[in-house]
Design a protein around this nucleic acid. Structure first.
Lengths: 189, 189
DNA sequence: CTCATAAAGCAAATATTTTGCGTTAGGTAA
DNA sequence: TTACCTAACGCAAAATATTTGCTTTATGAG
């Protein structure tokens, strides 16, 4: 029922987890979400269904687990020289990923998970990115909003629209959110 | 597979739908989400499981359907005399409902649904409320942000936090979002 | 090398979901 | 009213998926 982080890098657990994740990723490219099933994934991964049920609980949790892992940062967002541009560049890339069919599935799988903890990891992940971009700006001596203001002013509207009205999650709106968030930095909160 | 709106008020369909919804609501008060099952709901509602599967597709869609219906407005938000206060009053009530265990389940059920259309209805529902409060303010001659700005400035951070970090969805933050959104009205966008 | 244990396999028992087909309710038009 | 027509339901069998008890295996510790 609880999701285990890879306890030991090279152990059997880790191999099974990787095999199952891999099987999910491969099947996802070939089948729609509705067609995926635990027995099918188990077969492709070369494990027994009961292994998956014992470890992940059900299909939704497994898919969420895979999606969350996929979300993780390969590397640091590119430097552009200003906070506004850093935000815009990172954000456009993120919007691109998350408006795609694949991205929308990832978001959906994560939201479908009952594990509260998993969503909070998404939150902290985005927080980390905002903190990173902000830190750069501080180093350059730019006036910067707090991380919390970046979360509320940029991440929140972006995510809200990605979830509820994906067509309206556009680079143009992103610019606006960034501009407004940064401009409110210059005046009394 | 598709969700039907009550086709005819008094028909058999409508009776079945109401019986099933009612069964869900009653079972939800007694059992945790994990314990609910289609056969169980069907039995309580006095219908066959196949009826539910044919009409709603699966448990997730049924629960989402029930939750969405519950979300709907009994009546217009209270008048307080200013847009800021209208927003604060409505928002606090909304936060109250949605941070409760029941509310969190409702949100979760809706997000777990694969029906994109359903989420868009949530979006439009909130839009309607914002448009209503804004309209009042316009009537009073107040300076008002656009509905879109209210969605991005108030609804988005509120919803984002309700979903990803419910502990941080507080009335204090709400005040801040409202103040910032309204203050940006007074200056060039 | 042996032991202890956590995780996996296996297979039987349950439970859920799908499906084909007969039945019924309720709407429409003669 | 009566005679259809059809969408939605009930029923029960079949197909799938999930759970569970017990056995086996891999791995880390002593």
């Amino acid at each position: 029922m609880a999701i285990k982080e890879a306890v030991r890098p090279g152990g059997r657990s880790a191999r099974v987890q990787e095999a199952v994740h891999q099987a999910v990723r491969e099947l996802q490219t070939a089948k729609s979400r509705e067609e995926l099933s635990v027995p099918q994934i188990a077969h492709k991964a070369g494990v027994t269904p009961s292994t998956i049920y014992r470890r992940w609980g059900n299909l939704a949790e497994l898919l969420a687990d895979v999606s969350l892992e996929r979300l993780h940062p390969d590397d640091e967002p590119p430097h552009t020289g200003s906070l506004a541009n850093d935000l815009q560049a990172w954000g456009e890339h993120y919007l691109d990923e998350m408006t795609s069919p694949t991205g929308q599935c990832m978001l959906g799988d994560i939201m479908a998970s009952a594990e509260r903890e998993r969503r909070q990891r998404c939150y902290r992940y985005n927080e980390t990115i905002m903190a990173c971009l902000r830190e750069r700006a501080v180093m350059r001596g730019e006036a910067t909003p707090s991380v919390e203001d970046l979360m509320d002013g940029v991440i929140a509207p972006m995510t809200y629209r990605l979830l509820y009205a994906p067509d309206t999650a556009t680079p143009e709106r992103l610019s606006r959110w960034i501009a407004q968030t940064l401009s409110s930095t210059d005046m009394p909160g």
